[in-house]
Write a protein that binds this DNA or RNA. Structure first.
Length: 297
DNA sequence: GTTCAAAAGCAAAGGGTCAA
DNA sequence: TTGACCCTTTGCTTTTGAAC
């Protein structure tokens, strides 16, 4: 997937982003094992599946204890109209601005004792529509109760449709009760973009189509989201946790493993032994070889 | 190239003013 | 009375840059 993204940046002539992709490509390529533990370095890129998984886990561990205390959490989706790639950056900016204005408005009402406090966690995500070649940026939000969910939707509609021009419709905003908090928290923080996109959205539900990875769309989304915060909380703080300082230890007995794509595994530089013994499944093979759309249109 | 701490940059929270 | 906008402090997160 990363190699496809690199090809896209090459076609666009953007070497800086290509370098960032390469960093992700080499993430965890070297692993040191010692005393039954594995050590590696994270590239910490948004588009690195390894680092994303770690980041997700960290966020879940941090937020789940707080969110599970909420009385009756609701899941809210706020959207605007789908846009073309060249306008995506501008629209994401506008969505953040709109959300801030709403937050400020509610803050003032709360300060004056005439409104409730807006509390929740929110994340920015963007889907791609392969037929229309449009992008649909949206917020996924978890709030503690239905009152806040309804308020958010109401204010969002108000914010976007003030001038008489319709930027979004009430039908595009969704509110539902959280049934499985962990699942919804994962849904909220899944980080920026769905990697896989159904090739034909209309067929949804009727027939299972093979999802594809649209490399160009993914690159466009990553580009538009660069430097923007994807996951944020509002209206509350996490309880203070004391940071445990990692203890440094000098390791004498260790083994070095280097990842080799041909082997789909890490190989020991001293013994030639495989680290995991993993063999790529035919499904994954198919996915990586046949399901990445590298069109640059 | 990696690590780590300081600095810079951002956002939230709490407040205020002003004009419609 | 309300919303837009401004200010300051505080607490993070990200970036930078120097040491290794």
């Amino acid at each position: 997937m990363i190699l496809s993204l690199i090809d896209i940046t090459k076609a666009k002539g953007e070497s800086e982003r290509a370098q960032a992709y390469w960093n992700a490509y080499h993430c965890q390529s070297k692993i040191i094992s010692s005393d039954n533990k594995l050590y590696g370095n994270y590239c910490k890129n948004r588009f690195c599946t390894v680092c994303c998984a770690i980041r997700k886990a960290e966020i879940i561990n941090k937020y789940y204890p707080v969110l599970k205390e909420w009385e009756k959490p609701y899941f809210v989706t706020l959207t605007t109209k789908a846009v073309k790639a060249k306008n995506l950056n501008k629209w994401i900016f506008g969505m953040n601005r709109a959300f801030n204005i709403i937050k400020n408005r509610c803050k003032k009402r709360y300060q004056r004792g005439t409104g409730i406090q807006l509390i929740g966690v929110k994340s920015l995500e963007c889907n791609f529509n392969p037929q229309r070649k449009t992008y649909n940026p949206h917020f996924h939000i978890i709030v503690p109760n239905k009152v806040i969910a309804d308020l958010l939707k109401k204010e969002w509609m108000l914010q976007w449709n003030q001038t008489g021009v319709i930027y979004t419709s009430p039908k595009a905003q969704h509110i539902r009760e959280v049934e499985n908090l962990e699942r919804d928290l994962i849904e909220t923080i899944k980080y920026g973009s769905k990697i896989f996109t159904e090739a034909d959205l209309k067929k949804k539900g009727k027939k299972a189509t093979t999802p594809l990875i649209y490399a160009l769309a993914l690159d466009n989304i990553l580009c538009a989201m660069k430097g923007k915060r994807i996951f944020e909380r509002f209206g509350f703080n996490l309880p203070k946790t004391s940071k445990k300082k990692p203890i440094k230890q000098l390791v004498i007995n260790y083994e070095e493993f280097i990842f080799t794509s041909d082997a789909t595994d890490w190989i020991s530089t001293t013994t030639g032994k495989l680290l995991t013994g993993y063999t790529q499944t035919s499904q994954l093979n198919h996915l990586l070889n046949e399901c990445i759309n590298t069109e640059t249109y």
